[in-house]
Structures are given as structure tokens and as C-alpha cells.
Design a protein around this nucleic acid. Sequence first.
DNA 1: TTTGGCATTTGACTTAAATCAAATAATTAG
DNA 2: CTAATTATTTGATTTAAGTCAAATGCCAAA
Lengths: 188, 188
Amino acid sequence: MNEHLKKINALIDGFDAETNSALQAISKTKKYKKGEFLLYQGEVCKSSFWIEEGITRKYYMNEKKEVTTELLFKHDLAVAFSSYVSNQPSREFIQAITDVTVSCMDKNAFQHLKINHPQLIQLDLLMTEYYTMWLEKRLFEFHTLSAMERYKLLLKEQPDFIRHIPLTYIASYLGISLETLSRVRTKI
Amino acid sequence: MNEHLKKINALIDGFDAETNSALQAISKTKKYKKGEFLLYQGEVCKSSFWIEEGITRKYYMNEKKEVTTELLFKHDLAVAFSSYVSNQPSREFIQAITDVTVSCMDKNAFQHLKINHPQLIQLDLLMTEYYTMWLEKRLFEFHTLSAMERYKLLLKEQPDFIRHIPLTYIASYLGISLETLSRVRTKI
DNA sequence: TTTGGCATTTGACTTAAATCAAATAATTAG
DNA sequence: CTAATTATTTGATTTAAGTCAAATGCCAAA
């Protein structure tokens, strides 16, 4: 998996100065306070958010309950994927759960850049592949692991981050109730 | 979602004759008997399989049990994605569950073609996006629906196909036991 | 047409996790 | 510093789904 990140970095390292400055030109730094929204449900996702500092989450409402789909940290890319790709209103919110700094890249501008910079299509593909492999892994976890196993795995893979996130979000990310998560934690 | 298939078709329709014949040249038709394997676990997935006739499934073993990750029908693309993308041994098997005819495209040849045909990178991206949106939808279903709801949804979305597939595969695709599936079925 | 092997259903019981309710603990605002 | 929120834990109970076991149904090959 990490191999793939290397590929992405290698590609970016190979970009010429003109491509880099073009990318710079369509990106801008934004700051959000804890609790603020980078994207609301119902909005079409027209930007991607590269997290430079802080933590965000993606979630949607299901029968009055929040379902957290993704927790995003420094150097992650926050996008409501289906909305971004198909220009449909997003089912998901993207929310800052700490104060956050992001580099926000406009989708339309990026699409235009791709026309004259085929390397950027390649970049888009590699990033999408990365997210896709992450989704496959997550689906595998839902398909085969119990609540406790999923929590243990998360703890193993993201030990330091987890400390900064309220258990409600973690529980909903794992697809279990807050109480079950609390009980699981005592048994470890 | 279907909009996205239209995009893919529009892109392909716009290919020039040379691109098309190049694609033809790196594809070959293969036939598999019911039960045979298009890909074994442990093999690196070096082809993609466009289903022209019949049904296949992707699955892996977990604690001696089969976990079906995907059921693929006519006009679907069967690939062990993570293996294909990262050249790692596949965790998944791809198996014909009826007699099957596929158009098998060599990955390396396709990668080479992409160098001189940037349109093909675009195709690759669109196909990957399509799969990614499907994964997001499937994850949503695991995250929020009960066994019965998942079955009902499958029944609604794939009514005719389901008839041709043993319940064991459907149960494992839905992430529930065979017995639970059987009971769910009587209550509909 | 019978038989042996799958596929599916049904029954009894167990278990993981949800729900509802309340008690602590920890933060944050005034 | 204390009150007021918010976060987390603990307890009692229910429920969805799993497991184990057996019965029945359904073909397909001899």
C-alpha cells in the first residue's frame, strides 16, 4: 500500500516547474475552526481538500444518526468522492473536528489543467487507485472482523491519532455503538 | 451512477480506429467452464476480464470460510483490483460460477498502450472511478443496513441474476450466514 | 428410477452487539 | 473555581444474527 504512495510521490517529483506552478495557481489555503464544515450534505463537491494541519471527518446522516465514513489526518485528501466525480449533491458532510488548515483545489480548474498536462490524469488515476484500495481494505474489515477486532486494528494502525478523537466518532466509524466501543476498550 | 457508464461509453465511442485496433490486439477471448478459475489467490492479477457471457465471482478465504466480494455479470469487469494495481499476490480468487466467455486484456500491454494513447489513461480513470463509487455504495450498505435490508436491496437491483446463483454465494456476498439468508427469504 | 451428493429449509440454542437508562468523569464557559 | 455541558463508563435487558444439527428438496449420473 505504501508502495503506492511512493509511486504518487515519484510522479509528482517528476513534474516540471510549469505544471507545479499551475497546480499552485488553482489551489488556495483555507482555515476552518473546530466544528466548521468544509462541505455540507446536499452541496456538490467541487474541490478536493488536502489536509495540511488538523483532523477532519466525513459523515452522513442515517435515520437520525451520524455515520462516520472516514477520518482524515495530515497529508490525507478529503473529498466526497461520488459527488466530486459525478457532480451530484453529496450525501456526506466534511467537517473539521479540530482546527484545520487545508489546501483547497478547484475541481473544474484541475479538469482543465489535465487537458494540457496528461501527467495530471495519471496523478488523478493514482490518487483514485489509492483511495480504492483503502475502500477495499475497509470493506474487508466490515466483512470479516468483529467490533473488537476492528477496534484493535484501528488502534494498531492509527495509535496516536485515535487519542485526539471523541469516541462517538470512532464508534460510528467502526459501525458499532458507543457503549460497545467503551466496553471493548476495557477488555484490551 | 449510470451517468458514469454513459461517460465511459462516450469516451470509447470517440476512440479512433487505431486505438480500437490496438485494444483489440492486446485482448483475447477466453472460455472457462463452470467452477474453473480465472485467477487464483496468490497469483498476481495481470489481466482484466471483461465478461461477455456468464457469471463469475470474486472471493477470498477467511478462517476456512469463503467470503464473496463481488458477483460479476455480462458487461462487468472482473479484476482483483489491489493486486492488479500494486503487483502484489492476490488475496482473491476469481471463479466462473457458470460457463463463462471473457475478453481478457493484458495489463502490461495496456500500460504500454497508455503511453502513446492518453485517452486510455482517461478510460482507466473512468473505469476505476466507477468501481470506486460501487465500493462506496457497498460500504454504505454494510455500514447501515441489516441482513434483511441488504437482501431486499440486492433483490431489487439484481432480480433476474440472483435466480441463477446458489444461496451460499449470495449469503457470503451479503456477509450473513446461509441459514439467516434462508430465513430472511421466507419473510419477504 | 434409484441413489448419492448438493442446496435449502427448519429447529433449538448461543452469542455479539444494540438499546435504554443511569452514573461518573472530564472539559469548557462563565 | 464552580456550574454546566459533554464524554465515557457501567448495568440490565433485548434483539439480530450465528452456530450446530437434522430434515427435506432437488438434480444428475449411473
